[in-house]
Each structure stands twice: as structure tokens, then as C-alpha cells.
């Protein structure tokens, strides 16, 4: 009976994962391996192709899905889909404004900055998706509300980093619901510190992808990451630990069934949580550096909330 409960939990989390993260690993890998027929992604590999691909970057709609999605139904990659800048966050231009009227240098620099703002908008939307996924974890919404906030504050960038892995290979990453493939070399060619932002995620993702997890494994792992009882400032740790223990049992059982030949996969996966924390710490420091050094820097209010006093 206990195993049946654990299987039911993994099924529930997988269903929620598919519901809240429409670009699954299965879909992303199909796109990356060219198995989607004639709909191959637009490749951005230099500033010109970035300008040419602006319209796609701006697209908020998932190709092939409902033509009139509700505002709440948006896709799931931690990439570049421009949202609507929130009050106090706009003013520097969304991608839709275009580079008209700038010198060539200004054009490319403006483009870089707009690209960064698009990433922020998309990240904010992705935070909302992760929040909905977290709320679907049995018992999560019964936790102290302040602890729910803390778990999200500390866990969400780790989850977003994990969500990027299926979209990446050693050469680049999918963005905009899989409509764009941006090359790693192009991202490395951006000016500092922008060029430093995604490279650690590529390094992590290439290694992480060798574990060959599927979406059902990832759903459980994301829940484990969210339910970390050692986040700073938690008021009531014990119920969080109890929830995490249950999901951990479910994950362990699921990996044994789903990957019977993969030795120590459960242990290897848990070790990734240490790498994730370092990646997030470095990421936060980069954003804080940007905030100090970039004259026109403006952080999205939701990301400001998350990043404030975080590490």
C-alpha cells in the first residue's frame, strides 16, 4: 500500500509538471534532435540573427497550442520571451520597440540590454509557473505561508536552472517555447558580465543531462528541491522535512523502476543539489554586480523581491 501511495504521488507531480511546464524535456529533445518535421527552430548565432529573431523572441504564444491562450497559460522555458514590463520596470524598452534610431554600436548594445530585459520578464513568468507547481505538491499550501514564501524565494532559481537543462546541449539552448535556438558561442560573445551568466548553466546542464532523467523523474526532483528544510529563516522546519521525505521516497522508488540499470542514480541526483546551490549563489552575485555597475539597470520587481537579502 505504501508503494502504491508513492506511485500515486509521482503520477500526481508528473501531471502537475506537464500542466505547468508545457515545454517538456520530451518535446525539447525532439526539437533539438530535429524530430519535429519541418518546424526547426530559428537559430540565433550573432547580433544580426538576434535582430532578425526579435519577433520570435517577443512571441508569448506556444506554437501549435490554443490560438487564444489565457494570460495564465504561457510556456515554460527559462529563456527569452518578453512579458509586459510591470509598472516601474518599463521605460528601457521591451523588445518590441526595436532598435530604430540608434547608431550601429548603440543598436547592438541596446539589443543586448533588451535581450536581458526579455530574459528577466520570462524569468518572472517562469517564477509564477514554478509557484503553481509548488502549490500542487500535496501539503505545500498547508505549510505556514511565510515558510511557503521562503521555500520559493530560495528554491525558485534552483528550479529554473534545472528547468533549463532539458533545453540545452553543449552547443546552445532552446528559447521561446522551442522556437529559437541560441548558440552558446553567441552567448559567450556578449559583453561582460552578460557573457558569464549562462556559461555555468551550460556546464551544469551538459553534466546533468548525462543522467538521462525524463520528465517524470524531473517532476519529483523539482519537488524535492522546493521542499528543502534548510532554507534560512524557516519558521517550522519539521512539516517541510516530512513532506520532503515522502517525495524523496517516491523519487527513490520511481528511479529504481524507471532506470533499473542506472546504478546509484538516486545518490547522484541528490549530489546535484550542492552544485545547484553554488550556481545560484554565483548567479545572484552576478545580478547584484549588474545592479551596481550598469547605469540603466532595472530589475523586475518580482526578481527584486526574490534576490533581496538572498545569499
Amino acid at each position: 500500500p505504501e508503494a502504491a501511495d508513492l506511485r500515486a504521488l509521482s503520477r500526481l507531480l508528473y501531471d502537475s509538471y506537464v500542466k505547468h511546464f508545457p515545454l517538456t524535456k520530451a518535446k525539447a529533445r525532439a526539437i533539438l534532435s530535429g524530430k519535429t518535421g519541418d518546424s526547426s527552430p530559428f537559430i540565433i548565432h550573432d547580433m544580426k540573427s538576434l535582430m532578425d529573431g526579435e519577433q520570435l523572441i517577443n512571441c508569448k504564444q506556444i506554437p501549435g497550442r490554443d490560438q487564444h491562450p489565457s494570460p495564465a497559460v504561457l510556456a515554460d522555458n527559462y529563456g527569452v520571451v518578453a512579458g509586459h514590463p510591470a509598472p516601474g520596470y518599463g521605460g528601457l524598452g521591451g523588445l518590441s520597440q526595436g532598435p530604430i534610431g540608434l547608431s550601429h554600436q548603440g543598436r547592438t548594445e541596446g539589443l543586448e540590454l533588451r535581450f536581458f530585459y526579455s530574459c528577466q520578464s520570462r524569468s518572472a513568468e517562469a517564477v509564477r509557473e514554478v509557484t503553481e507547481f509548488a502549490k500542487s505538491i500535496p501539503g505545500f499550501v498547508d505549510l505556514d505561508l511565510n515558510d511557503q514564501v521562503t521555500l520559493l524565494k530560495y528554491g525558485v532559481i534552483e528550479v529554473l536552472t534545472l528547468r533549463m537543462a532539458p533545453l540545452m546541449n553543449k552547443d546552445g539552448t532552446l528559447m521561446s517555447y522551442g522556437q529559437i535556438f541560441m548558440t552558446r558561442e553567441f552567448l559567450k560573445s556578449l559583453r561582460k558580465p552578460f557573457c558569464q551568466m549562462l556559461e555555468p548553466k551550460f556546464e551544469f546542464s551538459v553534466k546533468f543531462n548525462t543522467l538521462e532523467l525524463d520528465d517524470s523523474d524531473l517532476a519529483l526532483f523539482l519537488a524535492v528541491v522546493i521542499l528543502s528544510g534548510d532554507r534560512p529563516g524557516l519558521l517550522n522546519v519539521r512539516p517541510i522535512e516530512r513532506l520532503q521525505e515522502t517525495v524523496l521516497h517516491s523519487l527513490e522508488l520511481h528511479l529504481k523502476v524507471n532506470h533499473p540499470d542506472s546504478m546509484q542514480l538516486f545518490a547522484k541526483l541528490l549530489q546535484k543539489m550542492t552544485d545547484l546551490r553554488q550556481i545560484v549563489t554565483d548567479h545572484v552575485h552576478l545580478i547584484q554586480l549588474l545592479d551596481k555597475t550598469e547605469v540603466d539597470m532595472c530589475l523586475h520587481p518580482l526578481l527584486q523581491e526574490i534576490l533581496k537579502d538572498l545569499y
Binding site: S70, L145, Q148, V149, K308
Partner: peptide
């Protein structure tokens, strides 16, 4: 609570599109 106003909103409103 004020420090994490949007996160609170996201957690408490399941469907309303928070102003992102």
C-alpha cells in the same frame, strides 16, 4: 509580508494574473 508582496500574491491567488 511587504518585502515579498508579489510572492504572497502568487501563492494566494491561484488564477488571477498577477501583474508581472
Amino acid at each position: 509580508k511587504e518585502k515579498h508582496k508579489i510572492l504572497h500574491q502568487l501563492l494566494q491567488n491561484s488564477t488571477s494574473p498577477v501583474d508581472l
